[in-house]
């Protein structure tokens, strides 16, 4: 190779993967905003016991259905008011973030791990195994997701853990399909053949050669379904099939406060707003993630 420049460039700094990722991610303003809100949400969940002014299950019998501080009759002792049992709304929302975060992480981890492994197997398996797996996934996909989750929880018994299991099962087929599609596309490429010629076994081909090249769409899907998981958990909570009272889970809080919707707006509005903001932030972030991880959108 002829040296083009007279002075060889001093080992030019190759932008690290993280720097490059941040460069593309930060171009999307909404995504950055989403990331900040999401970080605040994570911190809130991590330090919930320190941030919450009261125990979320403590009942203040003298302050039942007290409005937020800025409204007539409210006080700064309970900035967002209290619920029908006299519990502090702010403390409950802060503690509730823990449950939502927990639901999101557990559901996504279970669904991604299971989905990716089944998808990889199905992409590499002989045709009849592949067909069998895909038809089972099609059957799961053909049910409305919330309905299926509801049925599963009804079978397993209502609790937050069972709700998470149910939601994870409902989400699984998306990852299986996504992984299988990427695997089938990548398998055709020459680098996989050359790994085979180098003597790589099936397991090495699957997990070391092909899987890393399939990850981008899966990461994005994971980020997006994090919010859907929270939403579904809230919906199951609202229907009485998720977290059971007095757990301060946002969906359960909504369900409990249903009858006060006309008398005390704050009891329903704040948990709803919390769900809305969190889901919006995560979706915005997932959008940016997709742009930043898609190599086709990169310019260099």
């Amino acid at each position: 190779m002829a040296e083009l420049s007279a002075t060889p460039p001093k080992t030019e700094d190759r932008p690290s993967a993280l720097r490059e990722f941040w460069y593309y991610f930060s171009e999307n303003r909404g995504a950055v905003f989403g990331l900040w809100v999401f970080s605040a949400f994570v911190l809130c969940a991590a330090f919930a016991p320190l941030l919450a002014p009261y125990d979320p299950t403590e009942q203040f019998r003298n302050h039942i259905l007290q409005p937020p501080a800025w409204q007539e009759g409210g006080s700064w002792a309970f900035p967002l008011g209290t619920d029908p049992l006299g519990r502090d709304m702010l403390s409950r929302l802060i503690m509730g973030s823990r449950y939502s975060f927990f639901v999101g992480i557990v559901v996504v981890c279970v669904a991604v791990t299971g989905g990716v492994i089944v998808g990889l197997l199905s992409g590499f398996a002989p045709k009849w195994v592949d067909t069998m797996i895909m038809r089972v996934m099609d059957i799961i996909l053909s049910f409305p997701s919330l309905l299926l989750a509801l049925v599963l929880v009804a079978i397993l018994g209502p609790s937050l853990t069972n709700a998470m299991i149910a939601i994870a099962i409902v989400f699984q087929p998306h990852y299986v399909r996504l992984t299988r599609a990427s695997v089938l596309a990548e398998r055709q490429k020459d680098y996989v053949t050359s790994a085979r010629v180098a003597g790589a076994g099936k397991a090495r081909l699957m997990f070391k050669t092909v899987l890393p090249n399939c990850l981008a769409p899966i990461i994005v899907q994971a980020a997006l379904s994090f919010s859907t998981a929270i939403l579904d958990a809230a919906a199951l909570g609202f229907l009485g099939m998720g977290a059971q009272p007095p757990t301060p889970e946002w969906g359960t809080m909504l369900a409990e406060a249903r009858e006060f919707i006309l008398r005390a707006w704050w009891v329903v509005t704040f948990p709803g707003l919390a769900i809305l903001v969190t889901v919006l932030a995560i979706n915005l972030m997932g959008d940016g993630l997709r742009d930043a991880l898609d190599p086709k959108l990169k310019r260099s």
Partner: peptide
Amino acid sequence: FQDPYGSLNP
């Protein structure tokens, strides 16, 4: 292989 763009793991 023929295609140097597809034969190296990105």
